[in-house]
């Protein structure tokens, strides 16, 4: 009897001990939520993978309203989480404020630039990846015109559009380019019906490849191209699997890898603050090629786009960057 009690106590103390050593990671997702199959999904999957591989203690939340983001960060920090990761540009102010108040807690933030000794900013060279898919779009277009459907009309999404248009024009200088945005508020990430209407309008005007960067609204564009038998290009995650055959490729933004690496380095005690740039160079952004779209990308197209990729990395092609426009 005594023995069994002792064993139980031992097991209990072990489990609490190991619990105390486990890295506690809090993930604050944007309004799109973990099931947007795109941006937030990528972050969620990265963190989930870290949970499995690295045995960390993961807790994720989705922001309900604008006021909630700061409170969620503060709630994690107050509960002594070791690392709090904010996903999305909308979390910049919240992280800046909360990180200053909790200097012992480490923060990471995707798509926002926060300069603080305990914050790591994970930034992506979206324009470079967009340039590649723009080039592919121009090669695949039969009508000589390509379109872009953005989610919320903000500089970040304009950056996708600008790189994409430049890539298409690089391959075919005479190509027609149209761009539309779903909206100007956070709802734009969650409005597939409107995204579908925009895509249908672009198709009616002649576009046959549409790049969409609109979070959970992407599915609307995918529906539209499936109906009209045109092509779409997915974004952030590899979205080729969602509708095989009509998704030409995806502009992959390795949010999952960025999140995973940050967690891994923090666990190993190698957390560094400052900005980490993910570009073509380190596979932070890329076009995707898998079994779902291998029939759509001909070997010739692949060869050309790989060449362009090399040139961008080597600095021979200057991709225009919306952030540096002004």
């Amino acid at each position: 009897m005594v023995k069994s009690i002792l064993t139980t106590l031992l097991i209990l103390s072990c489990s609490t001990l190991s619990h105390a050593n486990t890295l506690k990671v809090g993930l604050v997702l944007d309004k799109g939520g973990k099931d947007d199959k795109s941006f937030n999904s990528a972050a969620y999957l990265g963190a989930k993978k870290a949970e499995q591989d690295l045995k960390i203690d993961l807790k994720y939340v989705e922001a309900t309203d604008t006021n909630a983001i700061e409170n969620l960060h503060r709630a994690f920090a107050r509960k002594n989480f070791d690392l709090v990761i904010g996903i999305g540009f909308a979390q910049q102010d919240a992280v800046k404020k909360v990180a200053a108040q909790f200097p012992k807690v480490k923060f990471a933030v995707v798509d926002s630039d926060v300069k603080a000794p305990n914050v790591r900013s994970l930034l992506f060279e979206e324009h470079e990846g967009s340039f590649l898919v723009g080039a592919l779009a121009a090669m695949a277009s039969k009508t000589n015109s390509v379109g872009f459907v953005g989610g919320m009309d903000i500089p970040l999404i304009r950056r996708f559009s600008m790189g994409y248009a430049a890539g298409a024009k690089y391959v075919n200088p005479k190509i027609n380019f149209t761009e539309n945005y779903v909206g100007v508020t956070g709802e734009a990430w969650n409005n597939p019906a409107k995204a579908k209407e925009l895509a249908l309008a672009q198709i009616a005007k002649g576009s046959d490849v549409i790049f969409v960067a609109a979070g959970a609204s992407n599915s609307g564009v995918f529906d539209a191209v499936e109906e009209k038998k045109k092509f779409a290009i997915g974004v952030d995650s590899n979205q080729n699997w969602i509708k095989p055959g009509v998704i030409l490729t995806s502009m992959m933004k390795a949010v999952d890898i960025a999140v995973y690496d940050t967690i891994k380095e923090t666990q190993a005690g190698k957390f560094t603050s400052g900005t980490v740039l993910y570009g073509l160079k380190n596979d932070g952004v890329n076009y995707t090629l898998d079994k779902y779209n291998e029939k759509l990308i001909t070997p010739d197209m692949k060869k050309k786009v790989e060449e362009i990729k090399k040139k961008i990395i080597a600095g021979q092609i200057q991709v225009p960057d919306y952030y540096k426009k002004k």
Binding site: T66, F89, A90, Q92, D93, L156, V184, T185
Partner: peptide, 18 residues
Amino acid sequence: AGWFALKIIPNPDSQNPE
């Protein structure tokens, strides 16, 4: 309100809709 906030008096320092 959305139009006025974003077209007439937007926050120049932020990408947030405010």
